[in-house]
């Protein structure tokens, strides 16, 4: 019967593979094709220019700045988000020390879990509006309002947050982390709940504290989940388009400012693609982003690969 197996499998896979090819693979190939042209984005006609777009990218300072920001995000976003999410998940699931001796989270863990998950429910558009109010540049903003009331800043010289070149990147990073932690908290919580309680109880009986339990038991047993989170977050860090383009100045042309200090590859790509009419050049950026994302995913999966622990 063996020779009948493959037609059977192919029969099932035909439709998904076809859809995947048409809707994912083919556009990727098209993008690569367009990246070799001077396509304007609004006309069916274009000229082949070879690798000119790619060599131009190498000499494009703004592209390099944007790439730098994405790489910085790739380093910071996963680390901070995962550390925070792990810490909170641990506290919510096994961090408590009830009098009964059982393993449980801190008091009110169920409530906190819901609260932490809230940001995940909000669409990115609402996030942008919400944080524009938080970062508002006069006393009407949440941060400035509080700082002024506390007497920590002069109402005549409010901090500009998103319009301050030295702060804008960190403001965006903070929103990304704020909105991400909840999801990974729930993900890690679910994984932690599948760890048998007796392992924790045994550790407890052996006199291990919270810290030791966390590093010697929780982390190794969660490694697969952490690895997945890492790849997701790295991909999110390569993007960051929605927040940067909606929250940072100059508004209306995909943000990225002031002075490209919050520029990411996706915003620079879109500005070239639509307002500047350099769609071919933008496609070249798209191809570069694609390969960077691909390489990062492969590398992070390889580097973090460890022996799987069966339990």
């Amino acid at each position: 019967m063996r020779h009948r197996k493959y037609p059977f499998i192919v029969g099932f896979l035909f439709l998904p593979v076809l859809l995947y090819t048409v809707l994912v693979i083919w556009p990727y190939i098209q993008t690569f094709g367009y990246s070799l042209t001077d396509w304007s984005g609004v006309s069916p006609s274009m000229n082949f220019v070879g690798f000119k777009n790619y060599t131009a990218l190498l000499h494009d300072d703004i592209f390099m700045t944007a790439l730098g920001h994405n790489l910085l995000l790739i380093v910071l976003l996963p680390v901070v988000t995962i550390v925070l999410a792990l810490f909170f998940a641990f506290m919510l699931n096994v961090g408590g020390r009830g009098g009964t001796g059982g393993i449980q989270g801190v008091r009110g863990a169920g409530f906190y879990k819901v609260v932490f998950f809230f940001p995940q429910v909000l669409s990115v558009a609402i996030l942008a509006v919400l944080f524009e109010a938080v970062y508002r540049s006069d006393g009407g903003g949440l941060l400035n309002g509080v700082l002024i009331k506390l007497g920590l800043e002069n109402a005549q010289q409010p901090i500009l947050w998103l319009s301050d070149p030295d702060l804008v990147f960190w403001c965006i990073l903070a929103v990304l982390i704020w909105s991400g932690v909840g999801f990974y908290l729930v993900m890690f919580s679910a994984a932690m709940q599948s760890i048998p309680k007796d392992i924790y109880e045994a550790a407890l009986l052996d006199g291990s504290g919270r810290g030791q339990t966390f590093f010697k038991i929780t982390i190794p047993l969660l490694w697969d989940t952490i690895q997945t989170a890492w790849v997701y977050l790295a991909i999110a860090a390569m993007d960051a388009f929605a927040l940067v383009s909606t929250m940072t100045p100059p508004a209306g042309i995909y943000g990225g400012g002031p002075n490209h200090r919050s520029e990411v590859l996706a915003t620079y790509l879109m500005r070239n693609f639509l307002p500047f009419g350099k769609a071919g050049y933008a496609c070249a950026m798209g191809v570069v982003i694609f390969f960077i994302t691909l390489i990062l995913s492969v590398v992070s999966l390889r580097v973090t690969r460890r022996e799987r622990i069966e339990y």
């Binding site: 556009p27 390569m238 929605a242 383009s245 996706a266 790509l269 982003i289 994302t293 691909l294």
Partner: peptide, 27 residues
């Protein structure tokens, strides 16, 4: 803009290359 940005985020998540899905060039 927000609405579009949200939509584009979904598209761009994989690396922005999907943008070309709506591009034509057949006319």
């Amino acid at each position: 803009i927000f609405k579009r940005a949200a939509a584009i985020t979904v598209l761009a998540a994989g690396g922005g290359s999907l943008l070309a899905a709506c591009a034509g060039g057949t006319g």
